[in-house]
């Protein structure tokens, strides 16, 4: 597989075309706006909490295929997780897209599950910001005082 087809594999293109958990929720407990000023990507993430559990995570946004697919995959990955589990997932995800952690072998379901589809980003360092924007925004929603927007710059 070439670097490009690895980057834009069918899972990514599918989530780009049909993002999951897309659209503003009726009720939520935390939210944040994220922005990548380099390319104009902008998204909003909402979280509904049940105690410490992320009961629902939704987003809307404008951006490239990588940022949209990453946001979509993220909402699926963190739903039902605790805050600490979501943080740990972000750590591993970030290690994957920056090339610090090797992707699982073909056909093997690794600890990141479907998020491993974004492993191809590690070959394109300038796209790491695109893949992490939704995660940074989620972190801001969960851990930061409401207020200033997030930026990956």
């Amino acid at each position: 597989m070439s670097d490009l087809t690895e980057l834009y594999q069918s899972v990514i293109l599918d989530h780009n075309r049909k993002p999951r958990n897309h659209g503003a929720p009726e009720r939520f407990d935390a939210t944040a706006d994220g922005r990548n000023t380099l390319c104009g990507d902008a998204l909003t993430v909402w979280v509904a909490l049940d105690g410490d559990t992320l009961a629902d995570v939704r987003f809307v946004g404008e951006g490239c295929a990588i940022s949209k697919a990453s946001a979509s995959l993220m909402t699926q990955a963190v739903k039902g997780k605790s805050r600490a589990e979501a943080d740990a997932l972000f750590e591993r995800f970030h290690a994957l897209v920056t090339g610090r952690e090797a992707p699982p072998a073909e056909g093997v379901r690794g600890p990141l599950g479907p998020l491993a589809a974004l492993a191809g980003v590690s070959r394109f360092p300038i796209r790491v910001k695109c893949a992490s924007l939704a995660w940074h925004t989620l972190q801001a929603a969960l851990h930061r005082e409401p207020g200033a927007p997030v930026t990956t710059e």
């Binding site: 834009y8 951006g63 295929a65 990588i66 796209r127």
Partner: peptide
């Protein structure tokens, strides 16, 4: 249509 400029730039850069 349906392809963000940032994705185009990456594909062209290759």
């Amino acid at each position: 249509a349906d392809v963000h400029p940032h994705d185009l730039a990456t594909i062209l850069d290759e």
